[in-house]
Design a protein around this nucleic acid. Structure first.
Length: 490
DNA sequence: ATAGGGTTAG
């Protein structure tokens, strides 16, 4: 008997039902029908089923079906599965699929769609160069992929700041008559502006001169980039231009501008935008409030930020992790650690999952206040939640320990940072060396110096002077090799 | 497919 339909249907009814379910995109129902004893769907409907699974994001099931397939799947089915994996971010599965596909006798290299997906998979794994090599192979075979694939490569090369490659791809696109579209330009402008490269703005203006019409998203993107580069004036002009072209700024645009004004410290203008947003009904969102709160905190207006935080509660606007983190950070900067701790507890009580940014400001504050042991307790709490401390977290604690005369513990902390993890700040080492030196821990200094050299840091001149004189005064054997290293590096 | 808020230390 079938657990799905409750009776034992014959093979052909099962098949008909299976087809209907697959057509309707009801993957789960179709899946349970497969458990029907003795039911073997026809290859054609199985292929449809695999494609259906892939589209629905059930990629593991799709890959599993392909693995067990007793028939030879069509290229369309392979492609659908690969695309599904790409969308689900499971590039790992793509490589197994690719292998199987080759084994089953498909000549992948001449299949533009498949190769395109593989290129995008490489890009998603930050192996853009490998994707580029595949592109070259395609071109050698007289083929070229879709714009989407070119755009992915451009995005990848922008990320790697390989701008020569970016322009090379643009030229290939034009040569192959795949005219760069609005998305292509968006990748370039985004890719450049995100990296604070003014070239992005030039490309944008060039694009307008050539008759492309930027849309609202594009305007917002460029305005954001300009704000990040500190070109708030240009950003404002662009805002007006956008309105003149008939695009009303929406909550994204407003938010980006607000952020920009906070960045240059123009609180009046930022508040004005917030009011304008209110007037248009855009301001009542978690994001707009968070922007206000973080911006106000950035300029020490913690009280105003706190009242906005309260206002959110009264208006029933959800306060999310970023809202909490913004205010926690602001309060800590002002030394209001008790309030900040209360907020952290509130965040946890709300069932929100904290992030490193929830803990870091508090750890920093506690260390500065002289309660490094309290900071270490928080650090442990953070690690118990499987949050990875940042390099600066270590900096706060090591410096804090040194300040409290615990330079030995500071050194132990340093030694406990796993090798492969982020390295502490150069200044932290300086601090540690000076503290150890004050406590006459010459052996320990040698240990720390060894780490400094291995990382490739250099020491401050005054630190070197005091170290050398200290070692000489105490007629301590200072290894010649290290003396050489110090001198050679400074 | 496309856009927004939390990161150091100066």
């Amino acid at each position: 008997m079938c657990s799905f339909c409750g009776f034992s249907p014959d093979q052909s009814s099962c098949n008909a039902l299976f087809c209907v379910l697959v057509d309707a995109g009801a993957c789960n129902a179709a899946k349970s029908l497969l458990d029907c004893p003795g039911f073997t769907p026809e290859p054609a409907s199985l292929e449809d089923y695999i494609q259906c699974l892939s589209r629905a994001g059930m990629v593991e099931d799709a890959v599993d079906m392909l693995k067990r397939a007793s028939f030879c799947p069509s290229v369309a089915t392979w492609n659908a599965s690969i695309l599904g994996c790409l969308r689900a971010g499971r590039t790992d599965l793509i490589w197994t699929l690719y292998e199987q596909m080759t084994e089953s006798g498909v000549v992948v290299s001449i299949n533009v769609e498949t190769v395109g997906y593989l290129i995008m998979a490489f890009c998603a794994e930050n192996k853009v160069l490998k994707g580029y090599e595949l592109l070259r192979e395609l071109l050698e075979n007289g083929l070229h992929p879709d714009n989407v694939v070119f755009n992915a490569l451009i995005r990848g090369f922008c990320k790697e700041r390989q701008y020569a490659r970016v322009s090379e791809i643009l030229h290939i696109m034009i040569a192959k008559q795949c005219n760069p579209d609005i998305f292509t330009y968006q990748e370039i402008i985004n890719g450049l502006l995100k990296r604070k490269n003014s070239e992005g703005f030039r490309v944008f203006n060039d694009l307008k001169d050539r008759g492309y019409f930027p849309d609202r998203v594009m305007y917002t993107t460029v305005i954001k980039g300009l704000c990040e580069m500190g070109w708030t004036g240009e950003a404002r002009k662009l805002g007006f231009e956008m309105i003149k072209k008939g695009f009303q700024p929406n909550e994204y645009t407003y938010n980006v501008m607000m952020h920009g004004y906070f960045k240059i410290g123009d609180l009046v203008a930022a508040r004005k935008i917030f009011e304008d947003m209110c007037g248009r009904g855009y301001a009542g969102t978690t994001v707009s409030y968070s922007t206000m709160i973080s911006g106000l905190c950035l300029h020490g207006k913690t009280d105003e930020a706190q009242s906005l935080f309260e206002e959110m509660f009264q208006k029933g606007i959800i306060r999310d992790l970023i809202t909490y983190n913004s205010l926690i950070n602001g309060l800590c900067k002002k030394g209001e650690l008790v309030k900040a701790t209360k907020l952290l507890n509130e965040l946890l009580a709300q069932g929100l999952e904290p992030s490193v940014f929830s803990f870091n400001p508090l750890i920093k504050g506690l260390c500065e206040e002289g309660d490094t042991q309290g900071a270490i307790r928080l650090w442990k709490d953070m690690c118990d939640r499987h949050l990875e401390p940042t390099a600066s977290t270590h900096d706060y604690i090591i410096t804090g320990l040194c300040k409290e005369g615990n330079s030995l513990q500071g050194m132990e902390w340093l030694l406990n940072i796993p090798r492969w993890k982020l390295k502490p700040h150069e200044q932290t080492f300086e601090y540690l060396i000076n503290s150890l030196s004050q406590e006459d821990r010459l052996d320990d200094i040698l240990v720390v110096l060894d780490i400094i050299f291995r990382i490739g840091y250099r020491l401050n001149e005054s630190t070197i002077h005091s170290l050398v004189s200290k070692f000489c005064r105490d007629s301590f054997h200072f290894p010649d090799l290290w003396l050489e290293k110090i001198l050679e590096r400074n």
